[in-house]
Amino acid sequence: MELIFVNILDGLVTGLLLFMLCSGLTLIFSMMGVLNFAHASFYMLGAYFGYEISTFVGFWPGLIFAPILVGIAGALVERYGLRRVHQYGHVPELIFTFGLALLIEEIIQFFWGKNIMAYDEPDILNFVAFSIAGNAFPAYKVFMIFVAMGIFLVLLYILTRTRVGLIIQAALSYPNTVQNLGHNVPLVFMGVFGVGTALAGVAGVIAGPVLGTFPGMAVVLGSIVFVTIVIGGLGSLWGALIASLLIGWLQTFAASYNIVIGDVLVSIGFTRPENLDDSALRDLWTLTVSQIGPILPFLLMVLVLAIRPQGLFGKRES
């Protein structure tokens, strides 16, 4: 029972971390209609910038400055790359971000090499916040939860309660009208792209010490981020939050319990073959849920798209 509670907390941490990435991605998508394949690469940039800054002046300045640097990099990419490709249509845009992801990974290896970086959480948070039945819950994870919550509330406030949010929301649906009203829509786009990538940068700085800072970290997370916003519904902030939490818990619980698929099959009426070695499906019988945990989100996505192409909370189809 205690373990379930611990798993709920762990899943919350994973889900909220995912949300920090998805919130930026979904904002960018709803504004510009482009699925940014390089989004996880900006997350990786955040982690590396954070690490580099932390080796000089410690973790906390890194938490402030690394996301700013990532945001500037993102804004530059929008201004000089995406805006140019935008005129060719959506497919070249998507392919551009795809190529950008490759390029960023290579650039990172060029400067930092291929080793895993020794990026650690700050000493001040390096203690056990509380324990449940022998399971330590590090203070750093509590900190992660609060940061993610804070970001969500601030975003929600900006988008729904401020003038900037109003313009952004208007530019989403009627960019030309907003332009005619005298607002600089390209600037808004650049700003949103910068802020979105900066959010990914924050996630990188925070996750780097826990999940490891290495050149493959974007790939590990990359496709899951799309899956999440596609499930949640493209362009929906609430959808992104709920899908992130759903996937966080799905993965945590799948990894936590060794349910054997064979047992499930038996319990729903199949008979186990006598001699497993002869069966072509022998691997299916010995498979556990934790073995397939990381691919469950993809299964979920295919199901959701086949049944409800606009995602759980999406209002329109892309």
């Binding site: 799309f226 691997d283 498979l287 397939i292 990381p294 691919i295 993809f298 299964l299 295919v302 798209l305």
Partner: peptide
């Protein structure tokens, strides 16, 4: 996008099962 994402999902699923289904 819907087609692109389904292709991504199916691709990931089949690549993953290629490691799992050894037979």
């Amino acid at each position: 996008t819907v087609f692109a994402m389904i292709s991504l999902g199916v691709g990931e699923l089949i690549a993953a099962s290629s490691i799992i289904i050894v037979a």
